[in-house]
C-alpha cells in the first residue's frame, strides 16, 4: 500500500514542468551561440588553403551549412561538390560546425583536428585512390552526340537531394548516344547515372537504360530507376585505345533529364 506521505511528495513531480521550462529557455539561448562567426570560417579556409593538394577534398558538415561556401567555395570546386564518392581523392578536410560529421568521414580516424571558434577542422587520409586515366566529363568538347544537343557537364540534383556533377542527357523516348574517340582502355570504366530529381519526383516512367559500347561492342548495361539505390556501374575494358559510346534509352520516360559521370580508372578505389 502506498503511504499518503509518499503520494503527497509526488506532487512535486509538477516541478518537472518548471525544469523543462528552464532547460528550454537555456537551450534557446545557447543554440545561436554555436553559430560560427565569419572569422571562424575564414581561419579554417586559410588553414586548408595552406595545406590543400590537388587530390584533396573539402567537405562541410552538417551538409546544410551552405553559408560555409562563401568562405570555402574556392577550395571546393563544383565537381568536388557534385562528387558521387571519394574514390579519386587522397585526403578529406572536414570543416564541421559544432559536433557535426560528414557521412564520408564517419568510418575514418582524423589525422589532425584544429578548432577555430565554433568550427572544427579535421583532416583524414583516405585509402589509396584510384588513378583517373580518362575523365569523360572533361572531354565533352571531343564528344559526338546523337539524338540530343551536347552540353558541358554541370550539377544536377538527384533523388536524394544531392548535387551531382554529371553530363546532362535529355530523355525524349528515343535513344540518345554520346561517343568518345581515342579513349585509353587500360583499366576499368566506372561511373554513375541519375535521373534529375525535378523531372523524376512524380515517379512516372522509367527506368532509364544505359548501355556502354567499346568499338561498337556492348560491354555492359546499367539500369537507373526512379528512387532506386545509387550504385556505380563498373566494367572491365579490353585495353589499348578505342571508341566508347554511351547509349541512353527510356522508352516511356519523356521530358526528363538523365545525368551520368564516368571515368576510366586504373586502380579503382571501390565504394568508399
Amino acid at each position: 500500500m502506498i503511504k499518503a506521505a509518499i503520494l503527497a511528495r509526488l506532487n512535486w513531480l509538477w516541478a518537472i514542468v518548471l525544469v523543462v521550462g528552464v532547460v528550454e529557455v537555456a537551450l534557446q539561448w545557447q543554440i545561436p551561440q554555436g553559430e560560427p562567426r565569419p572569422a571562424d570560417w575564414k581561419k579554417a579556409a586559410r588553414a586548408i588553403a595552406a595545406e590543400k593538394q590537388p587530390h584533396d577534398l573539402v567537405v562541410i558538415a552538417p551538409h546544410w551549412a551552405g553559408q560555409g561556401r562563401m568562405y570555402l567555395g574556392q577550395l571546393m570546386p563544383l565537381r568536388d561538390l557534385g562528387r558521387f564518392d571519394t574514390a579519386i581523392y587522397d585526403r578529406i578536410f572536414e570543416v564541421s560546425v559544432g559536433k557535426a560529421r560528414s557521412n564520408e568521414t564517419l568510418n575514418l580516424v582524423a589525422e589532425s583536428e584544429t578548432r577555430f571558434g565554433n568550427i572544427t577542422l579535421r583532416r583524414y587520409r583516405l585509402p589509396p585512390k584510384a588513378e583517373v586515366v580518362y575523365s569523360f566529363s572533361n572531354q565533352m568538347n571531343e564528344a559526338v552526340a546523337h539524338g540530343f544537343r551536347r552540353r558541358e557537364a554541370r550539377v544536377m540534383i538527384d533523388h536524394w537531394f544531392q548535387p551531382r556533377w554529371v553530363i546532362p542527357i535529355p530523355l525524349s523516348g528515343n535513344t540518345a548516344s554520346l561517343s568518345f574517340d581515342n579513349v585509353p582502355l587500360d583499366g576499368v570504366l566506372r561511373g554513375y547515372g541519375i535521373v534529375d530529381y525535378r523531372h523524376g519526383r512524380h515517379n512516372k516512367g522509367g527506368p532509364v537504360m544505359l548501355s556502354i559500347y567499346v568499338d561498337e561492342k556492348k560491354i555492359g548495361t546499367h539500369e537507373v530507376a526512379n528512387f532506386g539505390p545509387l550504385a556505380p556501374f563498373q566494367f572491365e575494358l579490353p585495353g589499348d585505345v578505342g571508341r566508347v559510346r554511351f547509349a541512353v534509352k527510356a522508352p516511356d520516360a519523356f521530358n526528363r533529364q538523365f545525368g551520368m559521370i564516368a571515368h576510366v580508372l586504373r586502380r579503382p578505389g571501390g565504394d568508399r
Binding site: P32, E35, Q74
Partner: peptide
C-alpha cells in the same frame, strides 16, 4: 544548381541564416 550553372559560380555572395541555418 540552376544558379550554379547559369552564373558559373557556386559561391554565394550573402547568406541569411537563422540559428546558423
Amino acid at each position: 544548381a540552376w544558379i550554379w550553372s547559369d552564373f558559373r559560380t557556386h559561391i554565394p555572395a550573402h547568406v541569411l541564416t537563422y540559428q546558423g541555418v
